[in-house]
Design a protein around this nucleic acid. Structure first.
Lengths: 136, 136
DNA sequence: ATCCTACGATGGACAGAGTCCAAGTCAAGA
DNA sequence: TCTTGACTTGGACTCTGTCCATCGTAGGAT
């Protein structure tokens, strides 16, 4: 882990204290923070950091493919740094907790060509919903 | 089709002109309108209808299980009246168009119990993404 | 057919998430 | 150390959705 900073530097991402803090907050496995949560954690280390900067940094990390945007409900998007390891999400319908899961099979394979309607399909995103142990 | 009104009446849904118009706008297959789009279409027939009323009606239709809420991106939710026929969605990453699709297999079956982490999993939602013919 | 009343509609204020912009600041190459 | 283009800031703004007090009306009761 924690080679996120490393990779970003190698890719020529201009490093500022704000960007470093955002990347550090996101680094790790099973992290699914909202932009506001990222901002709150970043602000613990760098109190003056602004929301706009956090949104900018997150947007760039997404463009760079280092972080994935996940919208599990209609509420705030979550940012998942585990972008290099394909996985799906299991979401608690009650409290919103998110777990990374690895289903069997390839979801893209389940869409026959007569169901693609001329689309160039590039991705299949599966969201499992249910109640987590604490909420059940 | 168009027995949506019928079903609602049978279920004792108090019928007002506003609710009727909302239900009529939503009736049909392959309809995936946002709340604002529903409001706009409803307002063509009933100019004074308010946004709050549309949101109320949509919320109730969802509670009644007659309409499904779909959040394909982080933006506005879409309302899918095709709730009685299980299906998944194919979304254009560029223009946001949504198509109903019927993949093979049962997505819930692809999540082995050692990947459920104690959750009571009740639903699997698959979103295929790609470019539609016009955007490709 | 008319009356009652509880349920529904209205619209304006409010809230949460996210974007935009002009002005100030700074990382990093020369 | 200097320079400059890229980055940051904070406040205003947009979009989506919710809330609430007040008014209107569907539909059962008479």
């Amino acid at each position: 882990m924690s080679d996120l900073l490393e990779r970003l530097r190698e890719r020529g991402w201009r490093m500022t204290s704000q960007r470093r803090v955002v990347a550090e907050v996101l680094d790790g496995d099973h992290v699914h923070l909202t932009a506001d949560e990222v901002h709150a954690r970043a602000a613990q280390r760098l109190p003056e950091i602004s929301r706009a900067t956090v949104y900018n940094a997150l947007g760039e990390l997404v463009s760079l493919g280092e972080v994935k945007e996940v919208s599990t409900d209609g509420r705030a998007k979550r940012y998942d740094p585990n972008a290099h390891h394909p996985h799906q999400h299991l979401v608690c319908s009650s409290c919103g907790t998110v777990r990374d899961v690895h289903p069997t099979g390839n979801p893209l394979g389940n869409l026959p060509s007569d169901q693609r309607f001329g689309f160039t399909v590039s991705e299949a995103e599966v969201t499992y919903r249910g109640l987590c142990p604490s909420c059940a």
